[in-house]
Design a protein around this nucleic acid. Sequence first.
DNA 1: TCTAATTAATCAAACGTTTGTTTGACTTTT
DNA 2: AAAAGTCAAACAAACGTTTGATTAATTAGA
Lengths: 212, 212
Amino acid sequence: MTKKEQILEAALELFGESGYEGTSVRALAAKAGVNVAMISYYFGSKKKLFEELMEYRAGHFYEKILTLKKEVNDPAEQLMQVVEFYVDKILSQPVFHRILYRQISLQQHSDLNSGIISMLVRNLDEIRKIIEDGIARKQFRPVHIELTIASIFGTISQVVLSSLFTARMMNAENASGFHYSGSFRNELVAHLRQMLSSMLGINILPDQNIHV
Amino acid sequence: MTKKEQILEAALELFGESGYEGTSVRALAAKAGVNVAMISYYFGSKKKLFEELMEYRAGHFYEKILTLKKEVNDPAEQLMQVVEFYVDKILSQPVFHRILYRQISLQQHSDLNSGIISMLVRNLDEIRKIIEDGIARKQFRPVHIELTIASIFGTISQVVLSSLFTARMMNAENASGFHYSGSFRNELVAHLRQMLSSMLGINILPDQNIHV
DNA sequence: TCTAATTAATCAAACGTTTGTTTGACTTTT
DNA sequence: AAAAGTCAAACAAACGTTTGATTAATTAGA
C-alpha cells in the first residue's frame, strides 16, 4: 500500500468518525503514519483530498442504472435490481456512505458537496423515472413517488447511519472495521422487496441474487 | 427576544447549515448580532451552547410515548400514534433534526452526543417494545423489528435530510425558513400508515388526526 | 423619590492553541 | 545529475476563550 493510499484509508476512517471539519490534517497524517506535508504533496489540500476520496469511492452507480434499464424491460424488475445493487454498494462501504449522507445534509453549497449532490440527484432521477414508467404502464399503483424513494433510501441509510447502535450491541469497538453479514444483507433485501411489493401493488418477485 | 435566545436561534440555523465544527463562535455572534464574548458569558462555552440547544429543542418524546402506552391499549393504534407524533415533531423543526441525525452519525463518543444517543436509544426501545407486543399478541406479522423501525424513521429522516433537494425544487433559498405544508404532512402520514399496515399485516386504521 | 452602591450586560482587544499550508534542507529513487 | 519523496520547522490565519474597562440596569438606604 502506497503512502497515498494510506492517507486515503486514514481519511475514510477519520472523516467517518469525526466528519470533515472535525478531522485535522495532523490527525490524518498521524493515522496514516506519514508526515503532515505529504497531504499537500499528494493531494494539494485537505479539500482536494476529500474530493478525491469521494470520487474514488463513489463508483459508477449511474452507469449501472443505465445499463440495467437497457438490459431489463420490466419496471418492477428494474427497481428491484437497482435496490439490490444499492444495498450491496452501501453495505460494502458503510463508512463512505455515512460521510456522504452527512455531507449532503449540510446546506452550505460549497465546492465540497456540490459535485456529490448533483451525482445523487442524477441517480435519484433515474429511479424516479423507473417508478413513473411503472405507473404509466399501469403495473404500479399511483404511489407518492418521492415518498416511495424516501422509504427505499431512508431504510438503507438508516441502517448505515444508526450502525453506531448496532455496532455497539455487537461489541464492535471500531465501526470502520465493522462489516455486515451476508444474511443481514439478504434480510434487508427481502424487507425492501416486501415493502415495495405491497406498496406498489405488485407480486413479489423471486430473489434471483441471494448472496450467502 | 433576549440576546440569549438570539444566540440559540443563530446556533440552530448555522449548526444546521454548516455543522458544529464548521460553525465558528464568531459566525454565531455575527448572525445573532451580539459580541463574541456573549456566548461564553451566557453559555460558558460553544459545547455547552450546543448541549443547551439540543436539550431545549429535544422536548419530551419519551414521556409522550409512555403516556400513550397507558392511554391506548392496541399496539397498532399505539404505533400509528407514535409515528404521527414523531412526524409532527420532526416536520415542525426539521433543522433541529438534521443537526441531531448528523451528530449521531458521528462516531466520536464525545460528551457532545452521548446524551443525544442515550435519549434516542431509549425512545427507539419503547417503539421496539410496541412492535414486540403486537407480534406477541399475534396482531402483527413476525416482521424484522429493527428493519421495520429503520423504515419508519428512515423514511421520515430521509425527507428531512434530503429537504435540500426539495427546498431547491421549491426555490426556497434558505432551508431554515422552509416549512412543510399540512397536506404534505398528511401525505407522509398516509404513506407510513399504508407502509406499516401492509408490512405488519394489519388493517388500515382510520386517521383520526388529519391536520389541515 | 433621589442618590449611592451593586450587580448585570456589553464590548474591543488580546490570549494561547490549533488550523491548513509552505518552506527549504535532506534522503531516496530514477 | 535529475527527479521524487520525506521531514522538522515555521507560516499566517482562524479558532474558542478570557480579560479588563465601560455602560446599563437593578437594588438599597435615606
